[in-house]
Amino acid sequence: GPMASDKRPRTAFTAEQLQRLKAEFQTNRYLTEQRRQSLAQELGLNESQIKIWFQNKRAK
Protein backbone atom coordinates (compact mmCIF):
# COMPACT_ATOMS: atom_id res chain seq x y z
CA GLY A 1 0.00 0.00 0.00
CA PRO A 2 0.94 3.68 -0.08
CA MET A 3 1.97 3.47 3.56
CA ALA A 4 4.89 1.21 2.70
CA SER A 5 7.65 3.68 2.03
CA ASP A 6 10.83 2.62 0.32
CA LYS A 7 12.97 4.71 2.63
CA ARG A 8 13.51 1.96 5.18
CA PRO A 9 14.13 -1.37 3.55
CA ARG A 10 13.29 -4.33 5.74
CA THR A 11 16.40 -6.11 6.84
CA ALA A 12 16.54 -9.72 5.79
CA PHE A 13 18.23 -11.47 8.68
CA THR A 14 19.98 -14.75 8.03
CA ALA A 15 18.67 -17.85 9.79
CA GLU A 16 21.81 -17.82 11.91
CA GLN A 17 21.27 -14.21 12.98
CA LEU A 18 17.62 -14.87 13.78
CA GLN A 19 18.53 -17.89 15.86
CA ARG A 20 20.98 -15.77 17.81
CA LEU A 21 18.49 -12.95 18.30
CA LYS A 22 15.78 -15.34 19.46
CA ALA A 23 18.13 -16.98 21.92
CA GLU A 24 19.08 -13.56 23.27
CA PHE A 25 15.43 -12.55 23.48
CA GLN A 26 14.61 -15.59 25.60
CA THR A 27 17.33 -14.53 28.03
CA ASN A 28 16.70 -10.80 27.89
CA ARG A 29 13.55 -9.17 26.58
CA TYR A 30 15.29 -5.83 26.96
CA LEU A 31 18.83 -5.29 25.75
CA THR A 32 21.28 -2.98 27.43
CA GLU A 33 23.15 -0.68 25.10
CA GLN A 34 26.25 -2.74 25.78
CA ARG A 35 24.57 -6.02 24.85
CA ARG A 36 23.18 -4.46 21.70
CA GLN A 37 26.58 -3.18 20.67
CA SER A 38 28.28 -6.52 21.16
CA LEU A 39 25.46 -8.35 19.38
CA ALA A 40 25.70 -5.93 16.48
CA GLN A 41 29.41 -6.56 16.20
CA GLU A 42 29.04 -10.29 16.62
CA LEU A 43 26.36 -10.57 13.95
CA GLY A 44 27.61 -7.85 11.63
CA LEU A 45 24.35 -5.97 12.01
CA ASN A 46 23.33 -2.42 12.66
CA GLU A 47 22.46 -1.61 16.27
CA SER A 48 19.23 0.02 15.15
CA GLN A 49 18.26 -3.15 13.28
CA ILE A 50 18.66 -5.14 16.47
CA LYS A 51 16.82 -2.55 18.52
CA ILE A 52 13.91 -2.59 16.08
CA TRP A 53 13.84 -6.38 15.95
CA PHE A 54 13.51 -6.49 19.73
CA GLN A 55 10.80 -3.84 19.72
CA ASN A 56 8.83 -5.74 17.09
CA LYS A 57 9.32 -9.01 18.92
CA ARG A 58 8.06 -7.53 22.19
CA ALA A 59 5.07 -5.98 20.44
CA LYS A 60 3.75 -9.35 19.30
Rank of each mutant, 00 (worst) to 15 (best):
1 G>D: 12
1 G>L: 08
1 G>K: 07
1 G>H: 10
1 G>A: 08
2 P>M: 12
2 P>Y: 05
2 P>C: 09
2 P>V: 10
2 P>A: 13
3 M>S: 11
3 M>E: 11
3 M>V: 14
3 M>I: 14
3 M>Q: 14
3 M>K: 08
4 A>P: 14
4 A>K: 09
4 A>V: 10
4 A>L: 11
4 A>T: 11
4 A>F: 09
4 A>Q: 14
4 A>E: 14
5 S>A: 12
5 S>D: 14
5 S>Q: 13
5 S>M: 04
5 S>C: 13
5 S>Y: 02
5 S>G: 12
5 S>K: 04
6 D>V: 08
6 D>T: 08
6 D>R: 02
6 D>Y: 01
6 D>F: 01
6 D>M: 03
6 D>A: 10
7 K>N: 13
7 K>V: 08
7 K>C: 15
7 K>I: 05
7 K>D: 15
7 K>A: 07
7 K>E: 15
8 R>F: 11
8 R>K: 14
8 R>W: 07
9 P>E: 07
9 P>A: 04
9 P>N: 04
9 P>G: 06
9 P>D: 06
9 P>T: 03
9 P>Q: 04
10 R>F: 15
10 R>P: 15
10 R>H: 15
10 R>M: 15
10 R>L: 15
10 R>A: 15
11 T>N: 10
11 T>K: 15
12 A>F: 13
12 A>C: 13
12 A>P: 15
12 A>D: 14
12 A>N: 15
12 A>E: 15
12 A>R: 15
13 F>L: 07
13 F>P: 03
13 F>N: 01
13 F>M: 06
14 T>V: 02
14 T>E: 02
14 T>A: 02
14 T>S: 10
14 T>K: 05
14 T>M: 02
14 T>I: 02
15 A>P: 13
15 A>K: 15
15 A>G: 07
15 A>V: 12
15 A>N: 07
15 A>H: 13
15 A>R: 12
15 A>C: 08
16 E>N: 12
16 E>A: 12
16 E>R: 13
16 E>G: 07
16 E>F: 14
16 E>S: 12
17 Q>M: 05
17 Q>P: 00
17 Q>R: 02
17 Q>T: 05
17 Q>D: 04
17 Q>C: 04
17 Q>K: 04
17 Q>V: 06
18 L>M: 06
18 L>D: 04
18 L>P: 00
18 L>E: 06
18 L>R: 15
18 L>Y: 09
18 L>A: 05
18 L>K: 11
18 L>T: 08
18 L>C: 05
18 L>G: 03
18 L>H: 07
18 L>S: 04
19 Q>Y: 06
19 Q>L: 09
19 Q>W: 05
19 Q>I: 14
20 R>F: 04
20 R>H: 04
20 R>V: 07
20 R>W: 03
20 R>A: 08
21 L>S: 00
21 L>H: 00
21 L>F: 02
21 L>W: 00
21 L>Y: 00
21 L>V: 01
21 L>P: 00
21 L>T: 00
21 L>I: 03
21 L>A: 00
22 K>Y: 10
22 K>F: 09
22 K>I: 10
22 K>C: 10
22 K>N: 09
23 A>P: 00
23 A>V: 09
23 A>K: 13
23 A>C: 07
23 A>D: 12
23 A>S: 10
23 A>Q: 15
24 E>M: 03
24 E>C: 03
24 E>L: 03
24 E>S: 03
24 E>R: 01
24 E>T: 03
24 E>D: 02
25 F>C: 02
25 F>V: 03
25 F>L: 03
25 F>M: 02
25 F>H: 02
26 Q>F: 09
26 Q>M: 10
26 Q>K: 14
26 Q>Y: 09
26 Q>H: 12
27 T>Q: 11
27 T>K: 13
27 T>P: 01
27 T>W: 08
27 T>E: 13
27 T>F: 13
27 T>H: 13
27 T>C: 08
27 T>N: 13
28 N>G: 05
28 N>M: 04
28 N>D: 09
28 N>S: 12
28 N>C: 09
29 R>V: 06
29 R>W: 08
29 R>Y: 04
29 R>F: 05
29 R>I: 08
29 R>S: 06
29 R>E: 04
30 Y>W: 10
30 Y>Q: 08
30 Y>V: 07
31 L>N: 02
31 L>I: 10
31 L>C: 06
31 L>Q: 03
31 L>S: 02
31 L>D: 08
31 L>F: 03
32 T>G: 07
32 T>M: 02
32 T>Y: 02
32 T>V: 03
32 T>A: 04
33 E>F: 11
33 E>C: 11
33 E>T: 13
34 Q>A: 11
34 Q>W: 08
34 Q>I: 12
34 Q>V: 14
34 Q>G: 13
34 Q>M: 10
34 Q>C: 06
34 Q>Y: 09
34 Q>T: 11
34 Q>L: 08
35 R>A: 08
35 R>E: 13
35 R>N: 06
35 R>T: 09
35 R>M: 10
35 R>Q: 13
36 R>Y: 09
36 R>D: 02
36 R>E: 08
36 R>G: 12
36 R>F: 05
36 R>C: 06
36 R>P: 02
37 Q>E: 05
37 Q>D: 05
37 Q>W: 08
37 Q>I: 12
37 Q>M: 11
37 Q>P: 02
38 S>T: 15
38 S>N: 13
38 S>Y: 11
38 S>E: 11
38 S>P: 01
39 L>I: 10
39 L>A: 00
39 L>T: 00
39 L>D: 00
39 L>H: 00
39 L>S: 00
40 A>S: 12
40 A>D: 00
40 A>F: 01
40 A>P: 00
40 A>W: 01
40 A>K: 02
40 A>G: 04
41 Q>M: 12
41 Q>S: 12
41 Q>K: 08
41 Q>E: 11
41 Q>I: 13
42 E>T: 04
42 E>G: 03
42 E>F: 03
42 E>P: 00
42 E>A: 05
42 E>D: 09
42 E>L: 06
42 E>H: 04
43 L>T: 08
43 L>C: 05
43 L>A: 01
43 L>I: 06
43 L>S: 02
43 L>D: 00
43 L>N: 01
44 G>A: 07
45 L>W: 01
45 L>C: 07
45 L>V: 12
45 L>D: 00
45 L>M: 07
45 L>G: 01
45 L>Y: 01
45 L>N: 00
46 N>S: 13
46 N>F: 12
46 N>L: 12
46 N>Q: 15
46 N>D: 10
47 E>Q: 10
47 E>H: 04
47 E>C: 04
47 E>R: 04
48 S>F: 13
48 S>M: 13
48 S>R: 12
48 S>L: 10
48 S>P: 04
48 S>G: 10
48 S>K: 14
48 S>N: 14
49 Q>E: 08
49 Q>P: 02
49 Q>K: 09
49 Q>I: 13
49 Q>H: 05
49 Q>G: 04
49 Q>T: 13
50 I>H: 00
50 I>D: 00
50 I>W: 01
50 I>L: 10
50 I>R: 00
51 K>I: 13
51 K>L: 10
51 K>A: 08
51 K>Q: 11
51 K>F: 08
52 I>Y: 07
52 I>G: 06
52 I>A: 13
52 I>E: 10
52 I>Q: 12
52 I>D: 04
52 I>V: 09
53 W>K: 00
53 W>Y: 05
53 W>C: 02
53 W>S: 00
53 W>N: 00
53 W>G: 00
53 W>F: 10
54 F>A: 01
54 F>L: 02
54 F>Q: 01
54 F>M: 03
54 F>P: 00
54 F>T: 01
54 F>S: 00
54 F>K: 00
54 F>E: 02
54 F>H: 01
55 Q>T: 07
55 Q>A: 12
55 Q>W: 15
55 Q>M: 08
55 Q>V: 07
55 Q>R: 14
55 Q>P: 01
55 Q>F: 10
56 N>W: 15
56 N>C: 10
56 N>S: 07
56 N>E: 06
56 N>G: 05
56 N>F: 14
56 N>Y: 15
56 N>M: 11
56 N>I: 14
57 K>P: 03
57 K>R: 14
57 K>E: 11
57 K>Y: 13
58 R>V: 07
58 R>W: 07
58 R>F: 07
58 R>Y: 05
58 R>G: 05
58 R>A: 08
59 A>E: 07
59 A>P: 05
59 A>L: 10
59 A>D: 10
59 A>R: 15
59 A>F: 05
60 K>M: 10
60 K>P: 05
60 K>V: 08
60 K>G: 06
60 K>Q: 13
60 K>L: 10
60 K>W: 04
60 K>R: 08
